[in-house]
Every structure is written in C-alpha cells, then in structure tokens.
Design a binder for these strands. Structure first.
Length: 439
RNA sequence: UCCUCGGUAGCUCAAUUGGCAGAGCAAUCGGCUGUUAACCGAUGGGUUGCAGGUUCGAGUCCUGCCCGAGGAGCCA
C-alpha cells in the first residue's frame, strides 16, 4: 500500500544508516532540499541526527508516490522506506533507494531558503533557523560543553546544589536586576549570580557547583552580551586563589579537549580552525594585574593603572598567547565587595579573570572570598549595601568560617569561543537581548 | 544611555546629477534517470520602514519618529 509506511520495517536514525547497509529501513524526517530530473528525484531528508539523500526513481515506486515526491517542498515532513545503499555520490556516503514515501504534512512557503539571509530575518525566525545545519552544529556543541561541565565536577566529588533564581536582593546593587512582584513580600529579583548561595552550599558540602540561568538588566548591546545567559559556578571550601586558578585551568582544558574529541563533525561544519583549540592545555599563563598593565603599555595603550581591563585591552593580552590566560589580583576598586584582599597589598583583590584566546575575552571571573566577619561588614558599609539582607551571608562567617574560593563560567561565551562565532546570540537556542525577547 | 551605520519584491541586494523601481534566489508552470546551494525555459510578485515637507517630478533632498546592526560603558 503506497503512501503508508509499513510498521513492520525497522526504523532507523540517519546517523546510524551505515549499520543498515542493504537493509530496508524507514526514516522519519523533514525535507532539507530537493533536486529533480524528471524521472528521478533526489530528496535530502534530515531527522535531527543527520541528513540522508533519498533517491526516488520513477520506475521503482508507485506512480502516486512519485507524484507525492513531486509536490514536496522544503521542510515538509515525510516518512521514507527503502533500501540503504552505500554510494560515494551521496552526501554522507549512504543513500536510501526509496520504495515508499508518505508526506505527513506539506509545508507551504518555508521562509528560510538555502541562500543568504540577514541577522534580523534569521533571529525573527529563530524557531525555524534552529533546523539549519550550522545552528544544529552549534547547539550540539553547546550540549557537549554542558555535558563536559557536569562530568568534570561530578567526577571530582562536587555536589550540584543549585541557587535560587528568584532572590530578595541583589548581589551587587539593584540597578541591573529584573524586578517582579512577589505576593505580599514586596519585590523579588531574578538572580544575577548564584554565588552567595553557592558559598552557603560549600560550607555545607565542601565542594559544590550551581548551574542555571542568570539575568542582567544591563543595557549592553554588544556581541558578548545576553540579558539571560547560563552560568556554572563552582565554590570550594578550604581553597585559596591558587587552588581556584588550578581548578579553572583544568576545567577549561577538560571542556575544550572533550569537544575536540567528541564534536569533530560539528566543528567541521563550522569550519573551526582546530589548531586554535588544540593548544588549550595546562598550564595556562598567569599574569599579575601589574604584568598585564605592563603588556598594555608595551603595546602602546594609554592605560590608567587601577582601571578595569576593557574589551580592547583583553584582546591585546589574550593575543599574546596560544591558550587562555589568567589575569589575577585586580584592583579592589573595580571588583565586588565579597572578594578577599591581598594581605600584602590591600588595594588588590585575590581575584582572577580567565580570558579566552583569539580575543574572545572574559569567560571566567572568580576570586577567593572574604571570610572574616568584621572585614566583610566593613566592605558592606564601604559599598553602601544594607546589612539586613546579608545577615544570612554573614552567618557563614559567624559559624565556622574558612578560606574559600570559586568562579563563574559563562556558557554562551564559552560556546562562542569554542565554535569560533562572531556573536553569542547563536549559542543559545532562544536569545534574550536588550532589543529582542521573541520568538 | 551615548556614538556610527542601515531599512527597496518572501530573501539577498542594485537603481548614475532628483527623471519609466530592476536582478539573482525563492514561489508557480513546463523540460530533463545520478543530482550535490543541480541545470534549462516561461510566469506572477512593490504602500521603497512610518508621518510630514521641498519640487513639474522624490527610493534619491530636508525634518521628526519607528525598527535593526556594530561599538562604548558594565559584565559572564
């Protein structure tokens, strides 16, 4: 019976077609592209795992099946049954010599054609753009990176302890927070960092990480910013700044080397230069802030000592090396209140930023945390922060305070770097930016 | 928030000094039994972002607004 897939036939995913050579299988997917020559048609079908060329010869199928194929359009959903055949002319090396095909739904005027499109158009059709092979590769690498992140911490005895997303107050002031009404309790805010809660969790479990979405209401409009992004934040009790840097470089090495090992086809689709990723191995260069400033001055930058590094400054520094570089001991003036000061030079913090190579900029920000009760109170006052919302945080210093450190890694910036992309908007399925919250 | 650039067919773009708004792709129809972003022929397709203004005449010049892109600041 034509037009209906035979339910007794083996269903196959396209990625595993090579296991079914010379066997009859059924694949279910969407028309990616079609080429027709009158009495023979080549239909490229994608099913999420790959793309397979289906060959429909007029003398090999029922006339009504051939006519259905004639009417197929891009992204129509189809079920195809046929023999898997090894053929070098087929993309991927295997094709399906169709015996039967049914159209589940014929798409009308699919907007994204296999031609060039502008950013605005593609972002407006993000829900469809995700079907294209380039976007497919990026999201699959994102998946692999997130897997590598969890694997790394899980294998090192870290416990996943997630921080809340709705919070009563800010970590660093309320100007950059999304605000919402919270029943009778007044305002609540979307978290801009899970860190303070991760510190509490670390005092309970020793080594923890939290991993979730983070929100910044900053009106940033650059290729490195989203208003909603994902961040993984490890926090470790009994760890100082050096321990923190050791952890960060081993972590990034693991992420990059895992992607190199497991995502080769996707990196190929993206035409990523692998020689830029292969050197990402320990040890990473470690630059004291003072040394970073020296490098900038040698490169002719008119840099004011004590300032934070700007995007252009980070690019200059990262281009000195073939792997990420760790800049530590930033001035306190440009860092958060909870960072511990260098006892020998109290104007500097025990902090570290990891700058990705090739000018991709900051992907990690971390520090040793202030663990002394009295000092922390002083920091709150210096920053004009109210004490009451931080009482629970101060408790961590009242009851068994220990040296502890941690950092946050931005997933989207990491994906952009690993994939070699121009902009972070393609590294998350549905980007939220200052001028876009749809689709 | 500030600076710079842009908005013309479904998409990507062109249109000389202010003088008939066009091409490629997509769509539709026809042809082709090994195509690789297939190819060949034909057809349809426009409130030139919006609102005013100047002019015999505005896609083009002027004013205001809307939308988008890149960057700065801030950050992951």
């Amino acid at each position: 019976m034509s037009g209906q897939a035979d339910s007794s036939v083996t269903k196959a995913r396209i990625e595993s077609l090579s296991n079914f050579n010379d066997q009859i299988v059924t694949i279910q997917g969407w028309v990616y592209n079609k080429r027709s020559s009158g009495k023979i048609q080549f239909i490229l079908v994608r099913d999420g795992s790959g793309i397979a060329q289906c060959v429909i010869a007029k003398n090999a199928v029922a006339p009504e099946v051939f006519s259905i194929c004639d009417s197929l359009t891009q992204e129509s959903s189809v079920t195809v049954t046929g023999k898997v055949h090894k053929d070098d002319r087929a993309p991927g090396g295997y094709e399906i010599q169709a015996e039967d095909l049914s159209a589940v739904q014929v798409a009308k005027d699919y907007p994204i054609t296999p031609k060039e499109h502008g950013v605005e158009f593609l972002m407006d059709h993000r829900h469809l753009w995700l079907r294209s092979s380039h976007q497919h590769a990026i999201i699959r690498i994102r998946h692999q990176i997130i897997k590598a992140v969890r694997e790394f911490f899980d294998n090192k005895g870290f416990i996943l302890v997630d921080s809340p997303i709705l919070t009563p107050a800010s970590v660093e002031g309320t100007s950059t927070l999304f605000e919402t009404e919270y029943f009778d309790l007044g305002k609540a805010y979307l978290t801009q960092s899970g860190q303070l809660y991760a510190e509490a969790s670390a005092m309970a479990f020793g080594k923890v990480y939290c991993f979730g979405p983070t929100f910044r209401a900053e009106k940033s409009k650059t290729r490195r910013h989203l208003t909603e992004f994902w961040m993984v934040e490890p926090e470790v009790a009994w760890a100082d700044l050096n321990d923190d840097m050791d952890l960060a470089e081993e972590f990034i090495e693991h992420i990059v080397q895992t992607v190199l090992m497991k995502s080769e086809p996707e990196l190929k689709v993206l035409e990523r230069d692998l020689t830029k990723l292969q050197p990402v191995k320990r040890p990473f260069p470690r630059l004291h802030y003072d040394e970073a400033v020296e490098i900038l001055k040698k490169n002719g930058v008119d840099f004011q000592y004590g300032n934070d590094l700007g995007g252009a400054d980070e690019t200059i520094i990262s281009q000195q090396y073939d792997r990420p570089v760790m800049v530590h001991h930033y001035p306190a003036a440009c860092k958060a209140f909870y960072m511990k000061r260098d006892p020998l030079r109290p104007e500097l913090t025990l902090s570290v930023d990891v700058l990705a190579s090739e000018g991709y900029g900051e992907i990690i920000g971390g520090s040793q945390r202030e663990d002394d009760y009295d000092t922390l109170i002083k920091r709150l006052e210096e920053n004009n922060l109210p004490r009451q919302p931080f009482e629970w945080y101060l408790d961590l210093r009242r009851y068994g305070s220990v040296p502890h450190s941690g950092f946050g890694l931005g997933i989207e910036r990491t994906v952009a770097w690993v994939c070699g992309l121009e902009h972070v908007r393609e590294t998350i399925p549905f980007a939220r930016m200052i001028y876009r919250n749809t689709p």
